[in-house]
Design a protein around this nucleic acid. Sequence first.
DNA 1: GTGGTCTAGACCACG
DNA 2: GTGGTCTAGACCACC
Lengths: 114, 114, 114, 114
Amino acid sequence: MLVELALQSDIPIYMQIRTQIIEDIATGEFKPGEALPSVRKFAEDLGINLHTVNKAYTLLKQDEFIQVHRQKGVVVHPDGPPKANTTYLTQLSTELRPMIVEAICRGVDEEGFF
Amino acid sequence: MLVELALQSDIPIYMQIRTQIIEDIATGEFKPGEALPSVRKFAEDLGINLHTVNKAYTLLKQDEFIQVHRQKGVVVHPDGPPKANTTYLTQLSTELRPMIVEAICRGVDEEGFF
Amino acid sequence: MLVELALQSDIPIYMQIRTQIIEDIATGEFKPGEALPSVRKFAEDLGINLHTVNKAYTLLKQDEFIQVHRQKGVVVHPDGPPKANTTYLTQLSTELRPMIVEAICRGVDEEGFF
Amino acid sequence: MLVELALQSDIPIYMQIRTQIIEDIATGEFKPGEALPSVRKFAEDLGINLHTVNKAYTLLKQDEFIQVHRQKGVVVHPDGPPKANTTYLTQLSTELRPMIVEAICRGVDEEGFF
DNA sequence: GTGGTCTAGACCACG
DNA sequence: GTGGTCTAGACCACC
């Protein structure tokens, strides 16, 4: 289980959790159908509040990265991660654009991005 | 002068201003040394609070995109936009990484980004 | 016997069972007087907890869709499904109303409902 | 302002709020662009917790019934209520079906629905 | 003053 | 024991 929090970051904790779980799914660390910790256990492990974990799980559930079984707990979505749709691509583009513009403006070349 | 605000956006207004001025500098809309509106006038034009413009200018000054002279007002930095340094690159990478990871995870191919 | 469960659904399993048995009665799949599986066997067939089936049967019995005989087991009510009474109609209306309102609000026309 | 809560209902309070605001929008009680009470004031008026109102607003925002301006507060979406899409219609159908089936089974005729 | 976030603690439905 | 919901109280960013 690989989730590390930067409590002092300005990025909300629930968003950090969401991001890292997506990353773990992307890298295959978490397989489709695999169980995730319960909100209570996860919160305890991370030393944070139950509701914060719950919020991250709720977001992941909305985007169909995970499934929440009310009694059995939380699992990585068995169908794998959701595919990009128009809404997502539009939003991604909107978020990415200012960062790309500033980077180009500051002279970051294409290799610098990766 | 090309700055359009989305008041209902989740992105803070001062950040939108900062972003769009950087974009105007990047596209050559604003040339090095060119004067920008005073805080007061800019705020009035946009119909927003003076402090909000001030905050955007402060950020741009910190990053050396602009210079603020007590008498002459605000000008685009005559040396052109600042070059990327390690701090900036680290931060950019930190912000970009989760977005890239999610995009790949959702099956966005490299052409999709641009 | 036609009952399929969506374990990951937000709808409680006992409610899914209740709903599908009512549907089977409505379509004539289950005839009045016909025997239903015992709680124990049904639970085993579905791979779920015995108490869950029991709860569904209890609800169906309360609404007089089925009869539970200590010896003979569970049968579809010989008089056929219960008629709507005021209590039921009131509750139905209460549940239906917000869904209808939202649907109309979103521009669903009458044909869209069926 | 017309929102009445049934605290003893099994329908979550935040859902009741969501439903009634949609109804007020549908009936024209709330016009597009009109301001809604702040989460704090609304919670106080209703005698409930701030977070419960916030949850209702979050849902309405997700479905684009309302817009949330971080500083200026909450307004009815100026473009009017969102149109039904495939996802919504599928979900509506799934929720409606068991209720319709039971109603027909109980002999409710078409006039009885309205 | 506004909404956003986090914490803490409680009760409930479900299985 | 699980997630869902509600309450209470706090701090922060924004304007």
